[in-house]
Amino acid sequence: MGHGATAVSGQVGSDAGPDAHVRVAVLELAGVSRLHAGRPVWAPVDLRVASGSLCIVTGDNGSGKTTLLRLAAGLLRPSTGSRICTGRALYVRAGAGLRGVQTVAGAVATTAGLAGRRSAATAALAVLGLDGSATRRVGTLSAGERVRVTLAAALAAQPSLLCLDEPTGVLDERGVDDLLAVLRQLRAGGCAVLLATHQPAAVLAGADAHLHLAGGRVSLHDPVSA
């Protein structure tokens, strides 16, 4: 499939569901590009992401996935074009984001506290099955456990847009299931998710769309046919 944009864009409204929030665009990129060392990472992108949607982002190393996600999250300034995002956008790279010296419970509570949602930390820890390791230091966790803790923090912070960069690489099978469960919970609350991965097979089934980066272009595909 070369360029599936029209097929997917045709779904606006019809498949959007009865909830009002799913029709609302959380993120709108218009003619956005980013220069790296004087050259554009990809051709200008027009992208609308509805609230509650899950979009898988794939592409080879160096194709610009991280740049797209960081730009979508507002961490990078577009070199051209404009970005509109309603609500809070977070970028989380694998299991990074928390301070290593803090305990799991402390780090999640502190991070949620920055979003004014400190009280949501306990429930988020329970969802990720982290009650048992609440007193362990983040720095002593394995890579997969760190991803869980970071997801708990993101869940507690309740963003409008969550950009997850390569969370699946270090997760075991149960970890991926838990990831999908967290994503369902986040999306039910209206959070849109962009998930970059090199293992799309595990997550495409539940996705709404599939962005593929190749040859300096970003194209949209139907996740089912991919």
Binding site: V8, S9, V22, L35, A43, L47, V49, A50, A192, L220
Partner: peptide, 21 residues
Amino acid sequence: AEPAVADPEPARPLVVTAKPQ
């Protein structure tokens, strides 16, 4: 000076919507 970027195809809008879960 920015290098000239060949972009023969105008970018089409990419729209991500949420399917009912």
